[in-house]
Amino acid sequence: MASGTKKKGPQGGKGGGKNAVKAARSTVVTKKGPPWALIAGITAIVLLAGGVFTYAFLQVSDAQKFIASEDNKDPSESIQGVVKVQYASGQHVQSTQRVAYDQSPPFGGPHDGVWADCTGIVYPSAVRTENMVHALEHGSVWIAYNPDKVQGAALDKLKSKVEGTAYMLMSPYPGLDRPISLQSWGHQLKLDSADDERIDQFIKSLRTNNYQNPEPGGRCDSNQTGFDPATPPPFVAEKPGADAVGMDGKAPGASTAPSAPAASTPAAPTTSAAQPSQ
């Protein structure tokens, strides 16, 4: 009993201590409530830090958004409405041949061995498409417009983006299904207004973009190449005939295009995928 009492004593003491703790805790909790000041402080700090990060991110993305780099090889991916198609480069046709393009206006595929001059030239009339596509291969941006729909101030605004500007060219494109169409190799953006901010974004993103264009450093001038910017070969409105070169670069007969005649002898191919491009 004595030991029991002894044991009980301290236990009673401890019990009293526990009660005291509980009492103290409950008193503290009751007195202080949730630590609102702490929660508010941490929330404010988190929001502030978030703000700093957001600001930094926006600054970065704003400056870098449309600049091609190793981390941002195709900045046009953040432009709404850009159509992308992968094309093989370096397939050439003769000046007498036509290509049955898969797009209108085309933005890649076989093309004339001679490129349209893209040293910031505004062509007053429509130019042979096969030459324009070669200019795209060298990194230029082609602004095509429907001459029935884009006139006056809108036309002047487009011209100002091209006239005298390196790696830019512009021409009317009869029958274009939208007022304006921008082409870069493998990329197209069709628009309704010359005021659309995406025009500059497209140019920034893709003109001489060494990741997207097949021939970095390709020239735009046309000295002695057979293309005279004063009298360029004209646009042909009629659809290409059965003898046109297919998108695979093969002349009919060698082509698998359904429109190709079942010729027993393949038409003499004048292009070769292996032919070095210029």
């Binding site: 600049i67 500007t165 001489t208 060494n210």
Partner: peptide, 9 residues
């Protein structure tokens, strides 16, 4: 990390 031609704007 800069454009090789001055930007259009």
């Amino acid at each position: 990390g800069q454009p090789t031609l001055s930007p259009p704007d």
